[in-house]
Design a protein around this nucleic acid. Sequence first.
DNA 1: TTGAAAGCGATACCAG
DNA 2: CTGGTATCGCTTTCAA
Lengths: 337, 337
Amino acid sequence: MNDIARVAGVSLATVDRVLNDRPGVRKVTIAKVQTAIDTLGYIRDTAAANLARKRVYTILFILPATGSEFVAGLEEAIRDQSQKLALDRTQLRVAKATPFDPQQIVAALDAVDPHEVDGIALFGPETPSIRDAVRRIRARGVAVVALVSDLPSSDRDHFVGIDNLAAGRTAAQLMGRFLRIQGTVLVLTGSRLARDHLERRQGFDLVMADEFPGQQVVASVEGRDDPALINDLLTRAFDSYPDLVGIYASAADHAGLIQYLSQSAPGKGPVVVAHELTPMARRALRDGVFDAVINQDRGHLVRSAVRVLRANVDGVPFNPTQERIRIDIYLKENLPA
Amino acid sequence: MNDIARVAGVSLATVDRVLNDRPGVRKVTIAKVQTAIDTLGYIRDTAAANLARKRVYTILFILPATGSEFVAGLEEAIRDQSQKLALDRTQLRVAKATPFDPQQIVAALDAVDPHEVDGIALFGPETPSIRDAVRRIRARGVAVVALVSDLPSSDRDHFVGIDNLAAGRTAAQLMGRFLRIQGTVLVLTGSRLARDHLERRQGFDLVMADEFPGQQVVASVEGRDDPALINDLLTRAFDSYPDLVGIYASAADHAGLIQYLSQSAPGKGPVVVAHELTPMARRALRDGVFDAVINQDRGHLVRSAVRVLRANVDGVPFNPTQERIRIDIYLKENLPA
DNA sequence: TTGAAAGCGATACCAG
DNA sequence: CTGGTATCGCTTTCAA
């Protein structure tokens, strides 16, 4: 900046104004500075900038208040990042809202103080009232991204999560390949409200129909993360379809499923493809109860949300390819330690 | 630091000395400062420290000089990181050494000036002369990590790369699961010198023998990344084993293999599991020539190497779990865009 | 519309 | 052994 100031024949303060698009600089002056910047090949030192600014970014994660291992894992990832980001002048907060109750999320969103919170990562269903609440808080100058489950109806949206259609396709490819005999494949889903589950189901059906037409995929059953309900559903499914050879668990809560499988299908059970590498899923994979798990790295989700929101707050662009969350596949052989 | 200085009743300079283990401070003073640090819950601001220090870390990557797409991808990842790390006062350099010639690597290692280079990430074979050269440069105060292929014989080693035994196991699980009929499985490797290839082969054999005893795995053939040679080897293999149903390509150069498969096995070829998601591998996966690809993220490799080397240079510990490189599995369905 | 100067949190050099 | 102080690259008053 000193060099630029010298070359442009202005003061440091003016260079700063130009660099940060601050008002109160004549066009000619801007041009002079701009030229100097270009010729000198200047790259800004964000660390120094933040140091001087003493700015602290506050980012709020709004998560569903379930006892789900997946959400617990997300919270852990958030705590993890908190540590590191403290040095980076970024503060992370978490709020919980009852799932399946949009009004709570709306309330949480409306309760946000724009002076206290710079950005929000929202993991919730896609409903009109939530969409409106997102609009409102954005209008008050807070950046918002959708987390895990997309909210495409809201404008200027960025989504932090995997491509769930592709994830469903991946699940289907694994299922189809792993199945040795023809039969019925059951899709076990969480809730119809959740857009991520819907998309997975869609992708799964497409590939199964296309590439494995010999297998019969039956209408999904909604488990709502309720072990008792799931137990019930599965019992009925195995009754109705004696040739049940595969289960695609597109939701993230595996308690009911694992419980049922471990007790009712001793030895050789159906091929099971599930989502999210939770502690339970790890064990199931290791024990041969699950055959494959599709995962989205929770650390990546959190880091990406933070990066995108910070970029948004600063009004700078981010690198979309870097922010694409990968669809991880785990077998028992490549489980991380 | 100001607070600490005040509470401890010493100057900033002394606090700095204690904080950085610099010599020339009495024990009592150290204790006073230490107490102040503890009571105040001080966390050091690395950004400010680096700013003041104006220190620039220089890290050298020594890579095999092949035309391989994998190495090209690594170089690209290094360039990518260079951009971002410039702001972080870290400079990345790349040197190439002919593979299969340990002496060149030794020469490259010996040529390093400890005043210019702080750390080295070495991607090379495991030979006694290289091990000695690593010892020498370490003795001169330069940190070294092994990249992609482990060098476990050298002491104080850290390895940046995947667990290749587990990777081989993963490949075998995919191969065994994907195969629909019994037959012969061929392992195509790069070089016997490369420890990573050996380990993969080992893991592959174990799981094939254990879980898929119906399949016959035949002794690996060494392609040395030579398309003509590979073409030749494959022709002979298909002659010798008319029931060849699967190929495990444990090396990273796919040119010869893909060329052979696309011309000689029109339509339904063998099940192919390969390593490294290079542009060629992507196409092969998309076109159905490859069935699965096992990958180690090149960006992760580079970032991890840099983090570990910087920690090493600074004499601070790093988080081993964070530095574990994952074994990625790609099918055509979860290919990143 | 512009400039001067005081920090931000840490390091490093020179004195004492 | 210890302290004072200039400095790193940038932001932010306060004046002019």
